[in-house]
């Protein structure tokens, strides 16, 4: 089937087998290997990406379901050489060890912060429940997400570290048809 999908700001048109999962399309066709596969049952969340601004497990979405939609992966969130505040917070707080779960964890954390800009520890833990990490025991991940929340809150931190809300909205219709 013919699909047209925008991934990390670039539009691609491809013929795909109907059974192709979005994660396999991203990895094998587009070379977006930053997004990884960690399980076969949608439990681990390593493959989390954004579809029209909302986090999805890309192993649970068919490539054809991304037709005419916008996908953002871990490779598309840094802007102009500047890391996304969540990426930076993961680095600063040592929120990763082997790093395999990290892309999915970061994409889920960004989604979590869009829904709840100032989560407490419990809210972060519940917000990341669908993403498994075997290395960190989660404590530094929780710390990183809360740290990023502080950095991203209006008026805090240097201008360069702030998320440009308008740019995000311009790039993707945040609340259009998510989850379908």
């Amino acid at each position: 089937m013919r699909i047209s999908v925008t991934v990390d700001g670039v539009e691609y048109r491809d013929d795909v087998e109907p059974r192709t999962l979005l994660v396999h399309y991203l990895r094998e066709r587009l070379g977006k290997t930053g997004t990884v596969v960690g399980c076969d049952t949608s439990n681990c969340g390593a493959c989390t990406v954004h579809l029209d601004g909302h986090s999805v497990k890309s192993c649970a979405v068919l490539a054809v379901q991304a037709n005419d939609r916008e996908v953002t992966t871990i490779e598309g969130i840094a802007r102009d050489g500047q890391l996304h505040p969540v990426q930076e917070a993961f680095h600063q707080n040592h929120a990763l060890q082997c790093g395999f779960c990290t892309p999915g964890m970061i994409m889920q954390a960004i989604d979590l912060l869009a829904d709840n800009p100032d989560p407490d520890e419990d809210e972060v833990r519940h917000g990341l429940e669908g993403n498994l990490c075997r290395c960190t025991g989660y404590q530094n991940i929780v710390r990183a997400v809360r740290d990023a929340a502080q950095k991203m809150s209006p008026g805090s931190g240097p201008e360069a570290e702030r998320v440009d809300e308008t740019a995000v909205v311009d790039r993707a219709p945040m609340h259009a048809g998510g989850g379908e």
């Binding site: 930053g34 871990i74 490779e75 990763l96 790093g99 970061i106």
Partner: peptide, 21 residues
């Protein structure tokens, strides 16, 4: 020290074996 390893791991620029083509 913050880790040198992180740079590629937080940006998806990793070299997992399965990434090889």
């Amino acid at each position: 020290r913050r880790r040198k390893e992180d740079a590629r791991l937080i940006t998806g620029a990793t070299r997992w074996t399965d990434n090889l083509q």
